[in-house]
Design a protein around this nucleic acid. Structure first.
Length: 817
DNA sequence: CATTCCCGCCACCGG
DNA sequence: CCGGTGGCGGGAATG
């Protein structure tokens, strides 16, 4: 009752009036007509321009609000009122566009532009509150920073790359990937037993999250308003926004569903209440944030369709984040206590401020952090003991080879070279380093000085390491890698992937592995929004999906829908596991193509598990291996067929006892941590794809169509095309032995074989099987070498040799509305 | 009905 | 104490 209905009534009126004359027909009610330009604002043209960018939303806009009150009298009478204030016109997204239009994306450093909230609100005709929403998220990306009351400085996108890099790093440090996995898994389980709460809530508690709690990620170069940012109980938007972004940067297909995001964000601070209302609120906030991010074109809305229906999600469309190679270098140089060099622009004072935010007050506020830490430890322990059988999927995608402007393949080489040589490079690139670590998370306040800083990289939050049981230093060394592709068992397998999957990427710098897991991945993504999407998105192409077989019905329908896929999979289909395997763990059953890559030179740069300091980390590796060339093709002979581990492999050496299933999750965590810490590049599917293209195995044009359906490209043709174009590659045959299907294919650089384990019908879900540990060993160069004890598995099957890159297949369906 | 998310109350906070 | 901030959630608009 307190909220005035305000204009609602009027608008309603207008609406109703309008409808009749508009179009009685079923045709979409949405008014297409563009409003006659009628500038009433200096910025009008700008707006128009902007709105042009966003197809949907245009429409006659303004007028109304202020102007009409007076004219309302007469206007009201007749409905020629085309002005339909419509909600969209007031959307945060549009507002944000307008806002952004006022400032240059890349303002010249010399002249800073300031933002005065009062002016903005006035010019844009919005309530202040809304501007805060926008500014807050911009602030979280360091695109603006607050100077004082009502005053902000506009930085534009200059800092964006660094920010993203920083966020990514932090995201990796938190175990977001795992958390996501966990959530999905739980969800999955719930599907079948709705009510049984089970003690699984165990799983529910996310693994820790602890650290980084409420910390706002700062950049060294960013000037921040004194105490403000760190100082108070910054409940959210800013932080939430950063975390949201982190989720994108960390998850492999760069798609995050609202639901998952909300859960994670909630879980992070207070795993206690899983309130429903809280969830709703979170979602609301996420929409707010998403709208702004969308305006920035960093993300776009999509829908993921799983068996359960489609859920709103967002896809990252922003720049990929580079591995911070140079970062490392910098780090090395600047390791010591001396202030970070970073960019010239920033002042030392500022840096220090950032690093050592004043008082520990916040620490107290965040009292919970300690508690959480403890909890997380407990959790871990529990997990170890009772971990679900299902393997955890981890995607270590630390490494993004692609710079910001991916599309052009042509650029690639150039860029690479640039990276290799250009040590110094632009200021922008350089600065990244440290400061990210959130000081406050650490239980005890750090006194002063040096440490924190630079280390973004090196320093692993103690908390993590302490918690995770198994942390192995991860040494580095050349290792051979294999790409393990998971053929989807699903009827609708994506066709194309297999085609190129088989090819050994000669020079990919692939190191990561990902294991997929359950249904989590099965989904269809529907994009909505701008139609004008260019070919790009290598990522999409690689996206893989794996699906549990069950539910074939639905999937089958989908299959029909998209005609593709069927055939090609014959081969693959065989691999499909029987239905019963649906139990989560099985889903994963490893099946796929194993592609041996070869040495991966790049080591992880530093993995400073504990002892090492950033400085120590060896960067050299990265230095010489170009992002793309990290791997040297290895002759087939050398390749050993390996069993697919349920898990993913990370550059760490991990040993698992065969039977400790529980260990899996834990391991992954530890892996993650370590991997995250290290800047070691992990392959990302996009990178791979990219690489393949680059190499010529796949033609750019062929690239997996973002939306097969839309494009109507028959799968078969596609695959053919691919194989032809690539020429050298083709799958020759597969033979099944035991439960392994082996494929051999000739590649440019030799023959490779792929192994696809088949599930034995009789085989009961073996709890243990998945756990097979995977590991690849890297020998520590100098130090004690970690002894790759692969032997982890007792039965021969379980072992995996070196790194394996597992790429789950997913069917992506993109459709825009 | 579900999804999206605008609006603005009102608690805070910093000055 | 005041006005800028910005959590937060109702419920309207839209799908």
């Amino acid at each position: 009752l307190n909220t005035p209905l305000k204009q609602a009534a009027t608008s309603q009126l207008v609406l109703t009036e309008r409808q009749p004359d508009c179009q009685p027909l079923a045709t979409p009610p949405k008014p297409k007509e563009t409003p006659p330009a009628d500038p009433w604002t200096p910025t009008f043209n700008l707006k128009m321009l902007i709105s042009a960018a966003s197809p949907e939303i245009r429409s006659r806009e303004q007028r109304r609000q202020l102007s009409d009150s007076s004219s309302e009298a007469h206007l009201l009478g007749d409905e020629y009122e085309k002005s339909q204030p419509s909600r969209k016109e007031k959307s945060l997204g549009l507002l944000c566009h307008k806002f952004l239009a006022r400032y240059p994306e890349y303002p010249s450093p010399s002249q800073k532009s300031y933002i005065c909230l009062d002016e903005v609100t006035e010019e844009l005709h919005v309530e202040r509150r809304r501007i805060y929403d926008i500014v807050n998220v911009l602030e979280s990306l360091h695109m603006v920073s607050r100077l004082a009351r009502n005053r902000y400085v506009w930085h534009g996108r200059h800092k964006l790359p660094q920010t993203l890099q920083a966020l990514k790093k932090v995201g990796e440090e938190n175990k977001y990937i795992q958390q996501i996995q966990m959530i999905k898994r739980r969800e999955y389980e719930h599907e079948f037993n709705p009510d049984s709460e089970r003690n699984e809530e165990i799983a529910s508690s996310f693994g820790s999250s602890e650290q980084s709690e409420m910390s706002f990620v700062e950049l060294p170069g960013v000037e921040f308003h004194a105490a403000s940012v760190n100082g108070r109980k910054y409940k959210s938007l800013r932080v939430m926004s950063q975390k949201f972004v982190m989720l994108f940067l960390v998850s492999t297909p760069r798609i995050v569903s609202l639901e998952v995001a909300a859960k994670i964000l909630i879980g992070e601070d207070q795993l206690e209440d899983l309130d429903k209302s809280k969830f709703k609120t979170k979602i609301r906030r996420l929409y707010d944030i998403a709208n702004v991010l969308s305006s920035l074109k960093l993300i776009k809305k999509v829908h993921v369709t799983e068996e359960r229906g489609r859920k709103p999600a967002f896809k990252w469309t922003g720049p990929e984040v580079l591995p911070n190679t140079q970062d490392a270098k910098l780090e090395a140089t600047s390791t010591t206590s001396s202030p970070p060099i970073s960019e010239s622009i920033l002042s030392k004072e500022q840096c220090s401020k950032a690093l050592f935010p004043s008082k520990g007050k916040q620490n107290f506020t965040r009292h919970s952090s300690l508690i959480k830490l403890v909890k997380s430890i407990e959790n871990d322990r529990r997990k170890i003991q009772s971990a679900p059988t299902s393997p955890v999927k981890i995607s270590a995608s630390t490494y993004q080879s692609l710079p910001v402007f991916p599309n052009t393949i042509a650029q690639f080489p150039a860029i690479t070279k640039h990276q290799l040589e250009g040590q110094s490079k632009t200021a922008e690139e350089v600065q990244m380093k440290g400061a990210l670590s959130s000081p406050e998370t650490v239980p005890k306040p750090e006194p002063s000085q040096q440490p924190a800083l630079s280390q973004s990289l090196g320093v692993c939050p103690a908390s993590h390491s302490s918690v995770s049981p198994v942390i192995l230093p991860h040494p580095q060394s050349g290792v051979s890698y294999a790409i393990y592709l998971h053929p989807s068992q699903a009827p609708t397998v994506t066709t194309y992937s297999p085609g190129f999957m088989l090819q050994p990427p000669p020079c990919a710098n692939v190191t990561g592995i990902k294991s997929n897991n359950s249904k989590v991945l099965n989904k269809i993504i529907t994009e909505e929004g701008d139609t004008q999407r260019t070919m790009d998105e290598p990522t999409k192409s690689l996206a893989a999906e794996e699906r549990p077989d069950m539910k074939s019905e639905t999937s089958s329908q989908q299959c029909l829908k998209r005609s593709l896929a069927l055939q090609e999979n014959n081969l693959i289909k065989r691999c499909k596991y029987d239905e019963e395997s649906l139990d989560t763990s099985l889903t994963f059953f490893p099946s796929g193509y194993l592609i041996p890559l070869t040495h991966c030179t790049h080591g992880n740069k530093e993995e400073c598990s504990n002892k090492e300091k950033a400085g120590v980390c060896s960067l050299q590796h990265t230095a010489y291996s170009s992002p793309i060339t990290g791997i040297i093709p290895m002759p087939a002979s050398e390749v050993k067929t390996v069993n697919i581990p349920a898990f993913h492999i990370t550059p760490l050496n991990i040993m698992l006892s065969p039977n400790s299933i529980a260990a899996a999750p834990v391991l992954s965590n530890s892996c993650l941590n370590s991997s995250s810490t290290s800047s070691a590049p992990n392959p990302s599917s996009s990178a791979l794809n990219f690489m393949l293209q680059h190499i010529g195995l796949i033609s750019a044009g062929v690239q997996v169509p973002a939306n097969p359906v839309l494009q109507h490209v028959p799968v078969s043709s596609q695959s053919e095309y691919i194989s032809h174009s690539s020429g050298s590659t083709n799958v020759q045959e597969g033979k099944v032995s035991k439960n392994i299907l082996q494929l051999n294919c000739g590649g440019l650089s030799g023959n490779y074989s792929a192994v696809i384990p088949l599930q034995q019908p009789s085989a009961p879900k073996e709890p243990q099987e998945p756990q097979a540990v995977t590991e690849n060993f890297f020998r520590t160069p100098g130090g004690p070498n970690m002894e790759p004890s692969l032997s982890a598995n007792s039965d021969g099957t379980q072992k995996i040799s070196q790194g394996t890159l597992y790429i789950p297949q997913r069917k992506l369906e993109v459709s825009e509305d």
